[in-house]
């Protein structure tokens, strides 16, 4: 049965309740001098409380733009959202006034970014920046807010938090800076935390610590976590489900163990095969041939077709809909059965 992507919210069947956050058929375009860049073309995903959704994709796949649209931090213009909904507890955030959205941002949906150094303000102490959440949103006094900042720094396991609260961002290491970003994001107990490549700029050992911290914090507070990454290795331990994005669309949606066992989209398969493995040491590492699509000039049909080993004639002409494989799984490939069987 071929259902179109529009009437399908993959995770709802699996959890059976109104999702905390639902992105529905979201489109984002950038109007530039060179033309209209369609960065997000009908993305839908959903997130429940306590759940971790990993959004996977390479640069330009639209994963970060989708997240920024949820937060409402896209620069508009040049960005335009012609279609779609972002429902948070049933309310479409895109229809809210700017004032109402400001009340959601940071307090109920928070976000952390890839480069913690440039994402922290260089001229204010970390304590000032964390406590700002309490001063502005909770009307706390400077002193009380500072105390809360120290508590939060302890909660994200920054050593000697009390002594370091008056230090500036540049005086911290990369991992510690990301912890400060996390402390700031979880300050007001948000219901959703979006982490946009939170570990990409960090050492491997520090990456693991940060992922562990995020997982622990999520367990403690039961918040929904959207983890945006291009690294399949990072998400394996923490994610509940994965949405793989390519060329501004979701190409595969699946629970995490299903996807690792047997991918249902050639792109996902390529990503999995390009992870270095100890048992294949010495062999040449697999790489998906070709380059990511040019968003100004997308290939006709399936955006992945120029790079796809499963390509048939109809891949060049027909855009594949998101085929439902099971209640919790879907793939935007005409030949998902072959891909699934072949892996």
């Amino acid at each position: 049965m071929a259902k179109t992507k529009n009437d399908l919210l993959p995770s709802e069947g699996g959890f059976g309740n109104e999702p905390l956050l639902a992105v529905d058929n979201l489109h984002v375009e950038f109007h530039t001098r060179a033309g209209v860049v369609k960065a997000v073309n009908g993305v839908s995903y959903s997130l429940s409380a306590g759940e971790t959704l990993a959004v996977l994709g390479e640069s330009g796949s639209g994963k970060s733009v989708t997240a920024q649209a949820i937060m409402g931090i896209l620069d508009m213009p040049p960005a335009v959202i012609p279609k779609g909904e972002v429902r948070f507890r049933g309310t479409d955030l895109l229809r809210l006034s700017e004032d109402a959205r400001t009340q959601v941002r940071g307090q109920r949906i928070a976000m952390i970014f890839q480069d913690a150094l440039s994402s922290l303000n260089p001229v204010f102490t970390v304590g000032w920046q964390i406590s700002e959440m309490f001063r502005v949103h909770r009307g706390m006094s400077k002193r009380d807010a500072m105390k809360k900042a120290v508590e939060l720094m302890e909660r994200v396991r920054i050593p000697a938090a009390k002594q370091r609260v008056n230090d500036y961002p540049h005086q911290f290491s990369g991992g510690m800076r990301q912890r400060i970003m996390i402390a700031m994001a979880i300050a007001l107990d948000p219901e959703v935390l979006i982490a946009d490549e939170p570990t990409t700029a960090l050492d491997v050992t520090v990456q693991a610590q940060i992922m562990e911290l995020l997982a622990d914090l999520q367990r403690e507070s039961n918040m929904g976590l959207i983890l945006i990454t291009h690294d399949l290795g990072v998400v394996a331990d923490v994610a509940d489900k994965i949405a793989v994005m390519y060329g501004g669309r979701i190409v595969e949606n699946a629970p995490v163990h299903d996807i690792y066992k047997a991918p249902a989209h050639p792109y996902t398969k390529g990503l999995l095969e390009s992870i270095p493995r100890v048992d294949l040491k010495g062999q040449e590492l697999y790489a998906i041939k070709g380059l990511p699509p040019n968003l100004l000039d997308m290939p006709s049909g399936c955006a992945f077709n120029p790079r796809c080993p499963y390509r048939q004639d109809n891949c060049v002409t027909d855009v594949p809909p998101l085929h439902e494989i099971s209640g919790v799984r879907s793939s935007a490939c005409h030949y998902w059965r072959e891909v699934l069987d072949g892996s």
Binding site: I73, Q103, F113, S119, H137, M184
Partner: peptide, 12 residues
């Protein structure tokens, strides 16, 4: 980036 952070923190 830090301006984007400030917006994401819900500052007006």
């Amino acid at each position: 980036d830090y301006i984007r952070t400030a917006v994401a923190k819900g500052m007006n």
